[in-house]
Nucleic acid binder design. Structure first.
Lengths: 238, 238
DNA sequence: TTGAATTTGTGCGTATGTATA
DNA sequence: GTATACATACGCACAAATTCA
């Protein structure tokens, strides 16, 4: 810890705390000292500590909760994306417990990207099912699923019952389906998603748009997934 | 713009400026007013404006340059990732101009992930070629390519000459090769990568580890790519 | 249920450092 | 070298969320 070294104090503090976490002096889930405490320890202003912690949060190493404290983050999930991608199977294969929770359902008119993906004419209806996917009870992604209304009217109710896309589609005669494409980018979450995923707004998310098709190649589902970047790693096999 | 509305001033300013950008009142590449100017305009302290701008930078909408100003960011690139992924072809297909620039080359001993990906024993050597991929002369990704030394000794020189992985591999008898897998996550860049990509450290990057194999399925290249999140969107087709 | 204590979040004012033009 | 613009840092005050008596 050195002043006037050409390296900003907050960066030095960031590196120091990171090292402490990496080397296990603070373990996943543990609470760090308070900002005031760290400020005293490093002989700097609380704002300076806050910057260092914000950087660590951005790097996914810690999670900051207002009124509670700052906590060391826990480990990541390898999520396999193949032609046959099934959330529950995927997570179960990792020997973890998958679950889901509906955020909202609605019937909407298909606009630009939704209509294009589902091969609907603009204005035709689509069923929206937005749900949180959880692993061991903790949210890892928020997904908006869109289905063509004509073919899948009532699938929202089915999902509410089963909590599974695969099971819901079975009720509509889809015994198997395949992923056609996925578009992936890195973003920062909006306030709602950050809240649903229990993460900071400055922490990156994996933003994935996907199209699933039936055995005849007809599109049956278009989804927009926002996954907690630091808790999730997408694995594509060709 | 409302004080005591329950929404922090900096968030209101963030939303307002975002709207201005989205609706084209400020165009890509344009310089925004100075921080001091914006602070006066919104009747807040300069720090408050800075926080709003930092959030917009994180969201990829603006780029902040010390001593120069704050600029509206430009558009994104759809990067197709298939079993046959070739950077130059990919970019040329978008009617844009691809180019590359070597950052460094070296011969290294293969450790954990590199050895595993290339099926080398720990300690066997690998050739590292680190390069920046550019589109229309602007950096979009930094990629570290690793090749088995035994088979591709001198490929670093070939890359320096050709500026292309595909062309370099041809010189070693590889007329065709395929992508076996890609692992994608969202992160924040380290200082070096942020500098090479001309982006802010708090702006997310797409972090992609890939393995390429020859026609016999033998691994010939392992790469770690860091792509500027907001300028890049990976498209996977199955 | 209320209220106090604790902890993080927001905002202002000021000063100084560093990069660019 | 000078002016401008962003970066870092300090100190103070109060708001908001959480916890616990």
């Amino acid at each position: 810890m050195e002043r006037g070294s050409g390296i900003a104090m907050w960066r030095q503090i960031e590196d120091r705390v990171r090292q402490d976490i990496i080397e296990g002096r603070w373990k996943p889930g543990e609470r760090l000292p308070t900002e005031t405490g760290l400020a005293q320890q490093f002989s700097v202003n609380r704002h300076t500590v806050r910057r260092a912690l914000a950087a660590l949060r951005d790097g996914g190493l810690v999670r900051i909760e207002q009124g509670r404290g700052t906590f060391v983050q826990d480990d990541v999930i390898d999520y396999a994306v193949t032609r046959r991608t099934r959330f529950s199977e995927n997570i179960a294969n990792l020997e973890r417990r998958p679950s889901g929770q509906v955020v909202r359902t609605a019937t909407v008119r298909a606009t630009g990207p939704i209509a294009a993906a589902l091969k609907l004419r603009r204005g035709q209806q689509a069923v929206l099912v937005e749900a949180i996917n959880m692993v061991d009870g903790r949210p890892v992604s928020v997904v908006a699923h869109y289905f063509p209304f004509m073919r899948f009217k009532g699938i929202d109710a089915a999902y509410r019952e089963t909590g599974s896309i695969t099971k819901s589609l079975k009720r509509f005669g889809i015994d198997d389906y395949f992923r056609k494409s996925s578009r992936v980018s890195a973003r920062l979450p909006d306030a709602d998603d950050a809240h649903l995923l229990n993460m900071a707004r400055a922490q990156p998310i994996l933003f994935t748009e996907s199209i699933n098709v039936d055995v005849d190649g007809q599109p049956i589902e278009y989804s927009i997934a926002r996954g907690a970047g630091h808790r999730l790693q997408l694995v594509f096999e060709f």
